[in-house]
């Protein structure tokens, strides 16, 4: 289990990560989303022990990560900016990984390379961007990590390869209880794969929740009545957003969907539709309740004083 307590990291006066506290259970796929410069990559590097925290600490199974090789041996990190030894082939890099990671599985490496149809004897510098990312993921996964950290995981991968990567990751999670932490600036990428989601903004952890909870606890209601009505009619419901155009209202509501639906039917509306929300919409409305105004992809906390 990963425990993060009061984690902070500053670069030249800029708070890249600002007092982040969270826990990541074993066996989950934890997604982190945030705008550019929100601190996702920095957070991952703190988790991996590349950066030393300025405040707080990261513990994996109770042991701090920084300068503890026995903990780092359980981690594998695939960064956004990949690195391979100059003019090396995948085989050569596998040799390097084999030297430093005690659990590196050469057979798995060869097997995955075949699956992804990558020539392990060819220089990685001749690979395309997507192929390099595949190579990096293969090497990371072949290390048999307990914790796999992926930064901008699917960047450069075609849809077929994305699915393949997802399958490989999910297989390890299922079979070996591997924990995966992946970051992206796109919710759609993470929606299908993750079971936990967190939102980082300006270095701080703004929102963290189970995806299923997020998706099922919020829903959109389109409702209309013959007689005149207003918002007061829906007192008692947990409303995040209410808008009325003519006689039709769009309401974003939190709660038990069945119970809410039954209650609304009892009010005998002319129109009643209960629609699921996309993850983006969920995030948008959740952020609004926290006081952040959604403007494209830039979140600004609204001053409600």
């Amino acid at each position: 289990m990963i425990n993060v307590e009061g984690l902070a990291k500053t670069f030249d006066g800029y708070n890249a990560v600002d007092n982040v506290t969270c826990s990541i259970q074993d066996g989950c796929i934890y997604g982190m989303v945030g705008s550019n410069g929100s601190g996702k990559s920095t957070f991952l590097r703190l988790l991996t022990g590349i950066y030393k925290p300025d405040k707080g600490n990261v513990y994996i199974d109770g042991i701090p990560v920084y300068e503890h090789p026995e903990v780092k041996n359980k981690l594998a990190f695939v960064p956004d900016d990949l690195y391979f030894v100059n003019n090396s082939s995948m085989k050569r890099m596998a040799g390097f990984y084999n030297c430093v990671y005690s659990n590196f599985d050469m057979d798995r490496f060869r097997s995955l390379s075949e699956t992804f149809k990558l020539d392990i004897n060819k220089s990685v510098s001749t690979f395309s961007k997507g192929m390099k990312r595949q190579a990096a993921i293969i090497l990371a996964v072949s290390s048999r990590p307990q914790y796999l950290l992926l930064d901008e995981t699917f960047d450069g991968l075609d849809p077929v390869m994305r699915n393949l990567v997802k399958n490989v990751i999910c297989q390890d999670v299922e079979e070996n209880n591997m924990t995966v932490i992946m970051t992206s600036h796109s919710l759609r990428e993470l929606e299908d794969t993750c079971d936990q989601l967190a939102l980082l903004h300006k270095g701080g952890l703004v929102l963290e929740s189970d995806i299923l909870d997020l998706k099922t606890s919020l829903f959109k209601i389109q409702i209309a009545f013959v007689e005149k009505y207003d918002r007061k009619m829906f007192e008692g419901f947990d409303i995040l957003h209410f808008s009325k155009h003519g006689s039709v209202s769009n309401i974003i509501m939190r709660g038990d969907k069945e119970a809410v639906a039954e209650h609304l039917r009892a009010m005998k509306p002319a129109i009643l539709d209960i629609l699921p929300l996309t993850l983006e919409e969920v995030f948008t409305y959740e952020m609004e309740t926290l006081g952040y105004v959604f403007n494209s992809e830039i979140f600004e906390k609204e001053d409600r004083s």
Binding site: G49, E67, L75, F77, P79, D81
Partner: peptide, 16 residues
């Protein structure tokens, strides 16, 4: 001298 390679070497399970 490069961020990506430096990060790589500091990520592997070897003390400095």
């Amino acid at each position: 001298n490069k961020r990506n390679s430096c990060d790589f070497y500091h990520a592997i399970p070897v003390k400095r």
